[in-house]
């Protein structure tokens, strides 16, 4: 299951999407909006996606994870638009026969999402400033 949504992520629904009698383990990862970055207070995060490609990349990652760890099921939901501090920005649930594969697949999925899925985050700060977060780029004036 792959979803991009501007709505609040229903974490229970993400877990239920992967629960199965074939599974002995379900692992859930949540990314949540932190209240500060680099000592600066954050009011909210704002996510933008290249929608079609993000879905395609997520589907490729899901397929690769299913094949590598013999997953029973996999669900990835990423939030777009404004996400208030404390709210969930991404939820990843995987189920597998045994916990080792579920933990490894969950860890691998969030790491790869942060490398290849075309989704970007902007930090809206408490002081009114806002910047896109781009690992590897030092923006002039940022």
């Amino acid at each position: 299951m792959i979803e991009l949504t501007t709505d609040t992520i229903d974490v229970a629904r993400v877990i239920e999407a992967v629960r199965s009698p074939k599974a002995g383990a379900v692992v859930l990862f949540l990314g949540t909006a932190r209240e500060s970055t680099g000592g600066r207070a954050v009011r909210s995060l704002e996510y933008e996606a290249y929608d079609a490609m993000a879905r395609a990349e997520l589907a490729r990652l899901e397929a690769q994870a299913r094949a590598t760890w013999d997953l029973v099921d996999c669900a990835i939901v990423h939030r777009l638009g404004e996400v208030a501090v404390g709210q969930t920005s991404v939820a990843i649930a995987v189920s597998a026969a045994h916990r080792e594969g579920a933990f490894e697949a969950g860890r691998w999925l969030i790491d790869r999402i942060k490398e290849v899925v075309p989704i970007w985050k902007k930090e809206n700060r408490a002081d009114g400033s806002a910047d896109w977060v781009h690992p590897m780029i030092d923006l002039p004036g940022a």
């Binding site: 990314g31 290249y50 075309p118 780029i137």
Partner: peptide, 10 residues
């Protein structure tokens, strides 16, 4: 064609 700056999802 799309131009993809370093991604920062998650």
């Amino acid at each position: 064609i799309a131009c993809i700056p370093p991604v920062s999802g998650g």
